[in-house]
C-alpha cells in the first residue's frame, strides 16, 4: 500500500495522484496493488462524505481522479478489476429525463469497483430486460424524479417478474421524491438516498463485505 497515494486520493489531489501512479508503475509495482491504494483512498472519501466533510462535488471529483488513474494502468479492465464487485445496470425510467442524480450514482459506482452499464434516460422496460439478459447483474438501479413515472417503475418491475428475471436481481430505486412508500408501491427492494448508500447496498447485495 502506498500511503502517499492513499492520502493524495483521499485529499483529491489530482496531480499528486497521477504522478504517484506513474512513479509506482515505473517501479514495476503491480497494477492491482496500485488500484488497492486508490480504492483505500476512495474508502476514505466515502467516509468523509458520510461525515459531511465532503459533498457531491468532492464525490464526483474523486471518481474522476480514480478513473483517470486507472486509465494510466490500462483501464479498469487492464488492471483486472473490471468486475471486482460485479455488474450494476442503471437508468432513468421512461418519461423521465432527470439525470443529474443518475450520473452521480453511475460515476461513483464505477470508481468503487463496479462494472456499470448506464442505459441513459427515458429508458423503456424492454431495454432493462435486454440488459439484464445480456449482463446478468445482481443489482439494478432505477432512477426516477417524477411521481408521474412511479407507475412506469411498477410496470417495469412487474415485467421483470413476468419474464422470470426478478428473482435474480435486487432492484434499487432513488431520486428526489422517491421514498419508502414509493418503494412499496412499485415493488422495489430498497431506496437509496445517495450515491454512497448505493455503493454500500450494492456491496451488501453482491455479497461483498
Amino acid at each position: 500500500m502506498s500511503n502517499k497515494l492513499v492520502e493524495a486520493m483521499a485529499d483529491l489531489n489530482e496531480d499528486a495522484v497521477l504522478e504517484e501512479v506513474k512513479a509506482l508503475k515505473a517501479k514495476n509495482v503491480p497494477a492491482l496493488d496500485i488500484i488497492a491504494s486508490l480504492q483505500e483512498g476512495m474508502g476514505i472519501v466515502g467516509k468523509r462524505f458520510e461525515e459531511k466533510e465532503y459533498f457531491l462535488s468532492e464525490l464526483i471529483m474523486s471518481a474522476e481522479i480514480f478513473n483517470e488513474a486507472s486509465q494510466l494502468l490500462g483501464g479498469m479492465g487492464g488492471a483486472g478489476t473490471a468486475s471486482k464487485y460485479g455488474t450494476f445496470v442503471m437508468g432513468t425510467i421512461y418519461d423521465d429525463i432527470h439525470d443529474i442524480g443518475k450520473n452521480i450514482v453511475t460515476t461513483v459506482m464505477s470508481s468503487n469497483g463496479f462494472n456499470v452499464i448506464d442505459l441513459g434516460v427515458d429508458v423503456p422496460t424492454a431495454k432493462y430486460v435486454e440488459a439484464i439478459r445480456q449482463y446478468k447483474p445482481k443489482v439494478i438501479g432505477i432512477s426516477c424524479l417524477l411521481t408521474t413515472a412511479f407507475d412506469n417503475i411498477k410496470e417495469c418491475i412487474q415485467t421483470l417478474e413476468k419474464e422470470g428475471l426478478r428473482k435474480d436481481v435486487k432492484v434499487l430505486i432513488g431520486g428526489g421524491p422517491v421514498d419508502e412508500a414509493t418503494c412499496k408501491y412499485v415493488g422495489a427492494d430498497h431506496v437509496c438516498r445517495n450515491a454512497q448508500e448505493t455503493v454500500e447496498y450494492s456491496k451488501k447485495y453482491m455479497g461483498v463485505q
Binding site: L12, S57, E58, I60, M61, I100, N103
Partner: peptide, 11 residues
C-alpha cells in the same frame, strides 16, 4: 451540465 461544472469549480 452539473457534473462538469462541479469538476470545473475544483479544477
Amino acid at each position: 451540465g452539473s457534473k462538469a461544472l462541479l469538476m470545473d469549480i475544483r479544477r
